[in-house]
Simulated scan of single mutants.
Amino acid sequence: MQTINTKWLWGIGALLLLNLVLLVTVFLQKGSDTRPEPSPFLEEALSFSPEQKQEFHALRNEHHQQMMEKNKEIKELKDQFFDGLKGDVAKTETEIINKRIGELVAEIDMITFEHFQEVRALCTPEQQKEFDLIITDLLHGGMSQQGPPRMGPPDGNRGPGPPSKRPGGRPF
């Protein structure tokens, strides 16, 4: 009877130790400044070559940096904008801040547009056709609710119901 209790104690002790290690790991990662690696969806969907992947990663990193800067500026402006609720701030000042936020959002759209132009320029003509289909799906909200399209069987049939079709009649 006593060996069973000893085994239970060792098991519980091991589980507590594993939980402690997990908590420390999560805490240390949460404080780190690294960002998770983005989904390789686009480079896989387009079957990028190693050289294309390298160029794509450089473009993606540059785009990410630009977006971080713009989003930081928007956040600071929104803080100023809503701080106006706390005191006497002239309406014209809040209008100026609001207008600047709108300008930054437009800049973000342009940066994103130019980024995807550069990504498309990396592609071969065949990859560009697939890229155009993916972008069309994104613009029409096809992926916004369900994430990137799943690569299913060649016939596009992924289970019960009719197969999904892309514009132009191609299955997802």
Rank of each mutant, 00 (worst) to 15 (best):
K75W: 02
K75N: 09
L77Q: 01
L77M: 09
L77E: 04
K78W: 00
K78F: 06
Q80F: 00
Q80I: 00
F81V: 01
F81T: 03
D83G: 08
D83R: 07
D83N: 14
L85N: 09
K86A: 13
G87L: 02
D88V: 01
V89R: 02
K91R: 11
T92K: 13
T92F: 07
T92E: 15
E93R: 07
E93D: 14
E95R: 13
I96Y: 00
I96C: 01
I96M: 10
I97T: 15
N98K: 13
K99T: 13
R100M: 02
R100P: 02
E103K: 12
E103A: 08
L104F: 08
L104H: 06
V105I: 15
V105T: 05
V105L: 13
A106K: 14
A106Y: 05
A106S: 13
E107R: 08
D109W: 03
D109P: 00
M110P: 00
M110T: 12
I111W: 00
I111Y: 05
F113A: 05
E114I: 08
H115E: 04
Q117Y: 02
Q117I: 10
Q117G: 02
Q117P: 00
E118T: 04
V119T: 09
A121R: 14
L122H: 04
C123M: 11
C123V: 07
C123H: 06
T124A: 12
T124C: 12
T124F: 13
P125H: 07
Q127V: 08
Q127W: 04
Q128E: 15
Q128C: 06
K129M: 12
K129N: 11
F131Y: 12
F131V: 11
F131K: 09
D132G: 08
D132S: 14
I134S: 08
T136C: 05
D137W: 09
D137M: 15
L138D: 05
L138Y: 15
L138S: 12
L138G: 13
L139P: 01
L139D: 14
L139G: 15
G141V: 09
G141T: 05
G141N: 04
G142K: 15
G142D: 14
G142C: 05
M143K: 03
Q145G: 12
Q145D: 15
Q145M: 14
Q146D: 11
Q146I: 13
G147R: 04
P149Q: 10
P149V: 08
R150V: 05
R150M: 05
R150S: 06
R150W: 01
G152W: 03
G152F: 00
G152I: 14
P153C: 03
P154V: 11
P154G: 09
D155K: 03
D155N: 15
G156R: 10
G156I: 10
R158K: 10
R158W: 01
G159I: 06
P160C: 06
G161V: 07
G161C: 10
P162E: 11
P162Q: 10
P163F: 07
P163S: 02
S164D: 07
S164R: 13
S164K: 12
K165V: 06
K165S: 04
R166L: 12
R166C: 02
P167A: 10
P167S: 08
P167C: 00
P167Q: 10
G168Q: 07
G168H: 09
G168A: 08
G168T: 03
G168L: 09
G169C: 06
G169A: 08
R170W: 04
P171A: 01
